[in-house]
Design a protein around this nucleic acid. Structure first.
Lengths: 223, 223
DNA sequence: TGCCAAGCGGACGAGATCGTCCACTTGAGC
DNA sequence: GCTCAAGTGGACGATCTCGTCCGCTTGGCA
């Protein structure tokens, strides 16, 4: 019984119809979460996907698992943005684009901000390794941008969390108001510039960057 | 029967025991909302207040009414901060203190941020008059601070909403992390300074300031 | 002290959501 | 085509929350 997978077809161990249903559930989840928030009833997701609740629960035993899987693609985009930022020869431009990309995602993908904020406190997830790497990468980016004299010297890596979570809150409070979101991003980026450093800042947060959901691992979320 | 108030004792038309209960409910609501968020069951509030649910519903027919009343004092503090800011001979210092006061309130009073954000979309409340005045006052403050060359000329009154709501989101996502909150406030205030105006900003939000919950009227909230 | 309207509390029915269980269906290999 | 494990759907009991109803209590005034 154990290890005998000769009968299963897909590479993910799912039968063709099951894999199809899984995709429909994820699409439905994104749509429902965007419309009603991530607290929408599971049954609503199941109905929109055209499957029974049991099927939904079998694939995603908890709401959290469903949320993560539904927005794994967006999380991946965040992780990719970090890689691209590091690859940019101009570290400030990389930094700027990283922040803008993540914020644009939060702004455009309804439901994602809530998923983003919800995923945040979980620093003990199974993606610890990917997160550690993201943390290290981001610190490298910060150091480079500071060495280039573009990023203010007192910028602390945890300030990224501050920026992203506050932006998250803004787009949650004012969904659809793109101007407000863009305005905040512009203000924050300006104040991160070296030229903006006038007085001393209060002490940075003790937040571990480890909990940053920038790199959420593969796009499957299927354990 | 109508208009005969000869038998009622308090100036608010409530019997002494009822007035006492009302206060206990408000205290309990603040405590429960701080602990479990403003979506906590009404019955929990009633239990903590030591009253029956019927008593709670009689005083506050909707959760919204309870939330408003529970945080009316904090709203008043916001309104007072605006008045004081206008009275300050240094308009920038007034502006700065206004933002810091409101953000400190959001930071320190657990539950208030949620109430603040929840109260926000309601621009049609019965406090329209007070709000209009607050809006006018704030615009005066902005104009003065800009004339003094302290506030950047492209600052738009709706940017206050952007700042307060994003801060709101931050403290909601990271309750207890005062350093993060202070850091965001410092960054935002720096980027609002005239010296920080480097490039052009994206267009401001079309938000009406009318919806700003800065002035929520009297401290009673009892209609 | 007595009256009575204002005030009170808890039981209760309605409605929503959760997550499981089980009998039926179907895809994939032979 | 046949077999059967994987997959499915919806009914169901448990739990929670809401807001009202109604019989009892009490504060304030005469």
């Amino acid at each position: 019984m154990v290890g005998d997978s000769s009968r299963i077809a897909g590479q993910d161990g799912l039968r063709a119809d099951a894999r199809r249903n899984r995709q429909r559930i994820l699409a439905a989840a994104r749509s429902v979460f965007a419309e009603h928030g991530i607290d929408a009833p599971m049954a609503t997701v199941a109905r929109r996907a055209g499957v029974g609740v049991a099927t939904l629960y079998r694939r995603f035993p908890t709401r959290d698992a469903l949320v993560r899987a539904a927005f794994a693609q967006q999380m991946d985009t965040c992780a990719r943005a970090l890689t691209e930022a590091l690859a940019d020869p101009d570290p400030w431009r990389g930094f700027q684009r990283l922040v803008e990309t993540v914020c644009a995602l939060q702004r455009e993908e309804r439901g994602f901000p809530a998923a983003f904020a919800a995923a945040f406190p979980d620093s003990t997830g199974e993606h610890a390794r990917a997160r550690e790497r993201a943390e290290r990468d981001f610190m490298t980016l910060v150091r480079r941008a500071q060495a280039a004299g573009a990023l203010r010297p007192d910028f602390h890596p945890s300030d990224l969390v501050v920026a992203l979570l506050s932006h998250c809150g803004l787009v949650t409070a004012l969904p659809g108001d793109r101007a407000a979101s863009r305005r905040l991003v512009a203000y924050l980026l300006q104040s991160f510039r070296a030229e903006a450093a006038h007085g001393a800042l209060p002490a940075p947060s003790a937040l571990s960057l480890r909990s940053l959901p920038l790199a959420a691992g593969g796009s499957t979320g299927h354990a």
